[in-house]
């Protein structure tokens, strides 16, 4: 479904990703792991072009993502769900509006959008919080609103950018539960950037390990963590052993 070839991105003199090649099958759940600054987030941001790569190729169902023009890109983005590390909710909108507003702006009737938003909120366990503003919610709840917003448009691809990184440990669990359930029930193709090894073991079809802007190892969770080939893999193995 998704094919990434030789993807490169550089910030000034700092190389963020240096020739990433990745192939994702439809329905597959990929967990990208690696140390901070290894290029995980940049990679998934390049997929929906929130970050413009310097070089490489991204093909979605054979269609080059990087060659999409403005309107095509926007349409493409509407088919991709993106969950941010910092939730990125619109502070002035209610929970319901946060979830539905892009649907309305995309031309879906308000009533339908509202119904779909409520459904999405129900999926993440936030029924009854529709009228609340993000500032009235906990970090975990805010992230669940972010997830609902990503899910509401029934995306063909979900990109998760360290969704639990900004949460305190107590709240991480509730988000991971929601994520795990969604991954298993919706069977939406997902690429998840996370440090949560446990979640990766349970939810991932395949784990991709990155280091210094490159993919250093890729494979099924059991393979990666039981018989790691890369240094990073070995570090994760030791972590699990602890």
């Amino acid at each position: 479904m998704l094919k990434i070839k030789g993807l490169k991105k550089q910030y000034g003199k700092q190389i963020a990703i240096d020739g990433v090649d990745l192939e994702v099958k439809r329905g597959e759940t990929i967990v990208i792991m690696g140390p901070s600054g290894c290029g995980k987030s940049t990679t998934i941001r390049c997929i929906n072009r929130l970050t413009e790569p310097d070089a490489g190729e991204i093909l979605l169902d054979g269609q080059s993502v990087l060659s999409l023009k403005d309107e095509e890109l926007r349409r493409f983005r509407r088919t991709i769900g993106f969950v941010f590390q910092q939730f990125n909710l619109i502070a002035r909108l209610t929970v319901l509006d946060n979830v539905m507003f892009h649907l309305v702006l995309a031309g879906i009737p308000r009533a339908e959008a509202e119904a779909r938003a409520k459904q999405a909120l129900a999926k993440v366990g936030l029924t009854g919080s529709e009228k609340k503003y993000p500032s009235a919610l906990s970090g975990g709840e805010q992230q669940r609103v972010g997830i609902a917003r990503a899910l509401v448009s029934n995306p063909q691809l979900m990109l998760w950018d360290e969704p639990t990184a900004s949460l305190d440990p107590i709240l991480v669990g509730e988000v991971l539960e929601v994520m795990e359930e969604l991954v298993q029930t919706t069977k939406t193709t997902s690429i998840i950037v996370t440090h949560e090894v446990g979640f990766a073991l349970k939810a991932a079809d395949r784990i991709v390990l990155m280091d210094r802007g490159r993919i250093v190892e890729s494979g099924a969770p059991q393979v990666i963590f039981n018989d790691p080939q890369s240094e990073i893999g070995k570090k994760y193995q030791r972590l699990i052993a602890c």
């Binding site: 929130l50 926007r74 939730f87 502070a91 892009h102 702006l105 995309a106």
Partner: peptide, 23 residues
């Protein structure tokens, strides 16, 4: 600028005009 909100708008496929008007 509320960069995270704009980023959310972009990721949701909003046009620049919509981002300006709504965010």
């Amino acid at each position: 600028v509320h960069a995270d909100e704009i980023m959310a708008g972009l990721s949701l496929g909003l046009s620049n005009v919509q981002i300006m008007h709504e965010i």
